[in-house]
């Protein structure tokens, strides 16, 4: 069992999370979310109930854990949580914060950079467009300048 040292608790972390979504304070640790979670089912290191507890205790080290990125946003937990905690939304807040602190898995960062640069995650290659042509579909060659969308963003 790991020791929790409350002197290290980061109240600022807890407050930021609450600001983002105060439903977290209603969590009474029943574990329904974890029992409903398809990620937990195959990978028990990802445990939404525990992550919520860590956030409420201000355990800042949660930000650097790889497992926090595993929420698939499937909303199964949210539909069942007896306390109305918006769990996937909180997980997103958490990964957003982790990113601001410099933590991010390679694959997720690659996707982000691709979308910001090209405006799309998948861009049709000439091979894709040949396939589309054979199906009677038009070529997709659009390029999008999405930089304007991001201007003035916080």
């Amino acid at each position: 069992m790991r020791e929790i040292n409350f002197r290290d608790a980061d109240n600022a972390l807890r407050d930021t999370v609450k600001e983002f979504d105060d439903t977290i304070t209603y969590c009474f640790q029943c574990g329904t979310c974890t029992a409903s979670c398809p990620v937990f089912e195959v990978y028990p290191d990802y445990n939404p109930r525990k992550i919520i507890r860590m956030l409420l205790l201000g355990m800042k080290e949660v930000l650097s854990e790889d497992f926090v990125w595993l929420c698939s946003s499937c909303y199964a937990c949210q539909e069942r949580c007896p306390q109305g905690v918006l769990i996937p939304h909180l997980m997103r807040a958490l990964t957003n914060m982790a990113f601001s602190e410099g933590y991010v898995p390679r694959g997720v960062l690659d996707q982000y950079q691709k979308v910001r640069k090209e405006g799309v995650l998948y861009r049709a290659s000439s091979y894709d467009n040949r396939k589309r042509k054979n199906l009677g579909l038009e070529k997709r060659t659009e390029e999008y300048d999405v930089s304007k969308i991001f201007e003035g963003q916080p």
């Binding site: 957003n96 990113f99 997720v108 996707q111 982000y112 916080p154």
Partner: peptide
């Protein structure tokens, strides 16, 4: 695809 990094 970019929600996990910057939702806004």
């Amino acid at each position: 695809p970019i929600k996990p990094i910057r939702e806004t």
